[in-house]
């Protein structure tokens, strides 16, 4: 894909909606198109987080290793969503395994390229952090709700409502 085409398709991703042309071009220089086949891992827990992904199609499930409980699936991420922010936060290691439930088409953004752009262009850096903070806030909210176990099923386990 030519850089111009890549910029245009990146622009369509909800994570980058309304981002101005110049910042998009900066991001494009760190981006590439990737495909993962169904049944393959995008990354594993503990590996260096060198990339993040903007999913265009397909679905990825995040798994944690639960010892004798085996792999525990905690969340799915799908088209239009962002996968991975461990590249942003020390120690820059993945906290989950990411497994493709279907064939996945995504933009892969190279983290070291992105970090260097963020450091040299504060406006770009701020814009990326602002967008990531929104994603983080939404995920935190969703995790809280998930932890509340609002549909609690056993007698005496439920909350106020049913």
């Amino acid at each position: 894909m030519k850089p111009q085409d890549l910029t245009e398709s990146l622009h369509k991703h909800p994570f980058l909606s309304n981002m101005n042309e110049e910042l998009l071009r900066t991001l494009t220089s760190c981006a590439s198109n990737v495909i993962f086949n169904e049944g393959t891992y995008l990354f594993h827990e503990g590996e260096d987080a060198k990339t993040f992904y903007l999913l265009r199609s397909g679905r990825v499930v995040l798994e944690v290793r639960g010892g004798e409980r085996g792999q525990i699936r905690i969340q799915t991420v799908g088209a239009g969503e962002v996968l991975g922010w461990s590249w942003l936060i020390s120690p820059y290691k993945w906290h989950f395994d990411a497994f493709a439930l279907e064939q996945v088409h995504a933009f892969a953004i190279d983290a070291s390229c992105l970090v260097s752009k963020c450091e040299t262009d504060c406006h770009f850096g701020y814009e990326m952090l602002r967008r990531f903070s929104e994603v983080l806030e939404r995920r935190l909210e969703a995790t809280r709700l998930q932890l509340l176990d609002v549909y609690g099923s056993a007698i005496g386990e439920r909350g106020e409502n049913y």
């Binding site: 679905r59 499930v61 085996g70 792999q71 525990i72 699936r73 905690i74 969340q75 799915t76 799908g78 439930l101 969703a142 998930q146 176990d149 549909y151």
Partner: peptide
């Protein structure tokens, strides 16, 4: 909210 490896749908 919780899936296992046999569940291919959404989790979250």
């Amino acid at each position: 909210d919780r899936g296992d490896s046999s569940w291919k749908g959404h989790i979250g």
